[in-house]
Nucleic acid binder design. Structure first.
Lengths: 210, 210
DNA sequence: TTCTAATTGTGAAATTTACCACAATGAGGT
DNA sequence: ACCTCATTGTGGTAAATTTCACAATTAGAA
């Protein structure tokens, strides 16, 4: 359907989406690639090229209609529908994500959170989600039609847990475990490794003369 | 000192570091670029090139000494010393980071956490850190020699808070706020935007045939 | 000592990504 | 209807990054 999309493009589209949402709240009707570029420290030409992979959304002389472009990016990113998400592991990160507004507002519905710990099972997070038993995971995934799993378990069991959820039919993983996991290629894994950002920062601070 | 380093290299070094640490715990003495590559799904040549920017750490025919390479990467990344960190904002993310083992183990000492909310100030997180008043922030930063700030405040105040902490002398920021922040170029900002990863995953799931 | 097998370090090629420059287009004014 | 100004969409080029390919080196065996 489309020509090949450079990998960094999807991530930037999500950034554009954020700004467009904000701008539409502020009542802006149109936005130009140069004003977007100024807000995001990106070259206008990059923004135009990114968008042009998916079609011509702009109008010459005027720029882009904020609402229309927002809707178009929603479609491209696949967040025009809602995704059912299960959080696996109710440690600090798992619990923090359990009702993270940024996710809920943008197309992701947290349908549950599971853990192994007897102590945690049954506890309620923010009067809204109750931690369930990992043993119920297959049932939860199948009945609630979970499509995305958020992996927040200890490193040493991560691959095992991943293998299970794949068997139960999950097709996408956001992986917070600091480990490279193996999965069939029809299962998409997106790694989030917070501690890498700290180390990258440290590197830049130490080597800032470069 | 060094030739120009491609931007993705620092992040990969942090990944290599993680594996080396694990391998050294398992008692491995040496490791080759190809075995590292297999573990991380990277081409061995990439690993060798990445390392070669900083010197020749390996021995032909044998590979790399695990401990030595680990120590070398620690130096390169600047985590051979400890960094003093202040968490700004005691919302979900801030509290989750407050004693995140991944950070504490790898060179970052959380020296405090501050918030504006009367309700939160004074509360203790994991019997270990007490949430302090943002009003005390200047004093905290100067007295505890804070070098890195972790920004976990609401979007609308982020730039203002950032401006303050920069005045108080902070030189590095890990920014969890979904917004591009402006700072003088001697202040390093590393963005962590969890919701982008979810959207990138959604994109890949929707466009997986590509 | 000499041979063999393993593995690095690195210039050069290939690939990927970003950027530029400009023709094409649309809106608004005269 | 025509001119002017702003801005897009895009082919081509430049820059950045990855990958290849191979000489150089080391360890160990014969």
């Amino acid at each position: 359907m489309f020509e090949k999309i450079p990998k960094p493009v999807a991530r930037r589209l999500a950034i554009y989406y954020r700004v467009l949402k904000e701008q539409s709240k502020n009542g802006a009707e149109t936005i130009s690639s140069s004003s977007l570029g100024r807000m995001l420290d990106l070259k206008p030409s990059q923004i135009r090229k990114d968008l042009s992979y998916f079609g011509g959304f702009g109008k010459r002389g005027t720029g882009y209609n904020v609402i229309d472009l927002m809707k178009s990016i929603e479609k491209i990113l696949g967040i025009d529908k809602r995704w059912n998400v299960l959080i696996i592991g109710a440690g600090k990160i798992g619990r923090a994500l359990a009702n993270y507004p940024g996710l809920i507002q943008d197309g992701f519905t947290i349908k549950g959170i599971v853990d192994v710990s007897e102590k945690k099972i049954g506890k309620t997070i923010d009067e809204h989600l109750t931690i369930e038993d990992v043993a119920e995971m297959e049932k939860i995934i199948r009945e609630r039609k979970i499509e995305i799993g958020v992996l927040c378990v200890p490193s040493d069991v991560a691959q095992k847990v991943l293998n299970s959820v794949i068997q139960y039919g999950i097709k996408g993983i956001v992986n917070f475990v600091p480990k490279r996991l193996k999965a069939p290629k029809d299962v998409m894994i997106e790694d989030v490794q917070i501690s890498l950002s700290f180390k990258a920062l440290s590197f830049r601070m130490v080597n800032s003369e470069r």
